Simulated assay, not measured.
Amino acid sequence: MVKLMNIYENTVEVKKEEKVKGYVHSTESFGAVDGPGIRYVAFLQGCRMRCMYCHNPDTWNIGVGTEMTSEEILDDAERYRAFWGPQGGITLSGGESLVQIDFTLDIFKKAKERNISTCLDTAGNPFTWKEPFFSKFEELMRYTDISLVDIKEIDPIKHKKLTGVDNKNIFEMIQYMGENHDDMWIRHVLVPGKTDFDEDLEKLSDYIAQIPNDVVKKVEILPYHTLGVRKYHEMKIPYKLEGIEPPTAERVKNAEKILKTSNYNLYKNWRPKII
């Protein structure tokens, strides 16, 4: 008797690819100060730094927030594509976007598949040479058009007092990005009595000057503000900068002069890279 072949023999079960999910604090459809052009901004949940002047303490906790897939974020972002122009796109901010590096990488890979410009807003604290993080970071940079890098304070002792963490690995990240010609904007929040010391600003200026000059597209001073104080009171978290007022216009101009911000204007003609 002839044995009939089972048509299901030798078949391989194809599992549906699981979608990467992450935790999102909130989104903004029309961000004008979160990278080049007009950008859709997703504020990812989670940060290990505790910057004294942070205005989003509600983004600190890790593993909470609105669970979303990359597709859900990008589908929502594309509704505003008509406003982006040649420079705009999507920015991942926080919190700290690198805390959820798998989610960030998945979003950026799929964004580039849709020809969407990508901008990474980071303070660099999660950076490490250790695996598996570093390989993921290397890959992330291939899909990142530009990064907004927040340098909190160049002096390591003051940095730890200000943020609760060391800054050695942060500058290692910046060095790696510079050596690999990864475009960046550098930002520094000016806080009277905390990050507004001429000697430290001079050191920061010298540090930025040694980064390859085609990498740093813009340097900007962000004046400290008190808009987030209400959140601390509502969350019953002590606010460590009570009584400190925003910097005067003169101090902001002084910092801009020391950092030579007017010399860094390549952002005006900047365009996303094509993968």
Rank of each mutant, 00 (worst) to 15 (best):
I101D: 05
V33K: 02
Q45F: 07
K253E: 10
L98A: 11
T59N: 06
Q87M: 03
E179A: 12
V165L: 11
E153A: 10
D121M: 02
E17P: 07
D166W: 02
S262W: 10
K130M: 05
V99K: 13
D196F: 00
F43T: 08
F30I: 15
K253H: 06
T128A: 09
E153L: 06
E153K: 09
P192Y: 12
E202R: 14
I157S: 05
G228P: 00
N213K: 13
D76I: 08
R187E: 06
Q87K: 12
Q100P: 06
G65L: 01
T59F: 13
S117D: 04
G46E: 09
V149P: 01
K236F: 07
L98K: 11
M49L: 15
T226Y: 03
G46P: 04
P192V: 14
H225S: 13
V14I: 15
N61C: 12
A42L: 00
L162D: 04
G164I: 06
I73Q: 04
S26C: 07
M52V: 10
W185G: 05
L266M: 03
D58E: 13
Y53C: 05
R251Y: 07
C54R: 08
Y232D: 01
P246W: 09
E17N: 09
E245S: 02
G88I: 04
V191I: 15
S205L: 05
S135W: 00
E172K: 13
I211R: 08
F197W: 10
S29Q: 12
V33R: 05
E17K: 15
G88F: 04
D206F: 14
F137M: 11
F83I: 00
E28A: 12
Y224D: 04
K136V: 14
E113P: 00
E138R: 13
P86G: 03
V41I: 15
G46Y: 05
E245L: 06
H159K: 05
E17F: 07
S29E: 15
Y232L: 02
L74C: 07
R142M: 11
D183A: 08
P238L: 04
N254Y: 06
Q175R: 14
R50W: 13
K231W: 10
Y176M: 07
P36A: 08
R271V: 05
H181V: 10
Y80G: 01
N125F: 14
K257S: 11
Q175E: 11
V12L: 15
D102W: 06
E28V: 13
R114T: 06
M68C: 13
E242S: 10
R271K: 08
P212W: 13
D106H: 02
A82P: 00
F83E: 05
K253A: 11
V99A: 14
H225R: 14
R142I: 08
D150C: 01
Y8P: 00
D198I: 09
D155H: 11
K203C: 01
T59P: 05
V64H: 03
M173Y: 00
K21Y: 12
G88W: 01
L4W: 10
C54D: 07
Y224T: 10
Y143E: 09
E220K: 10
F133Y: 12
M52Q: 09
I221S: 03
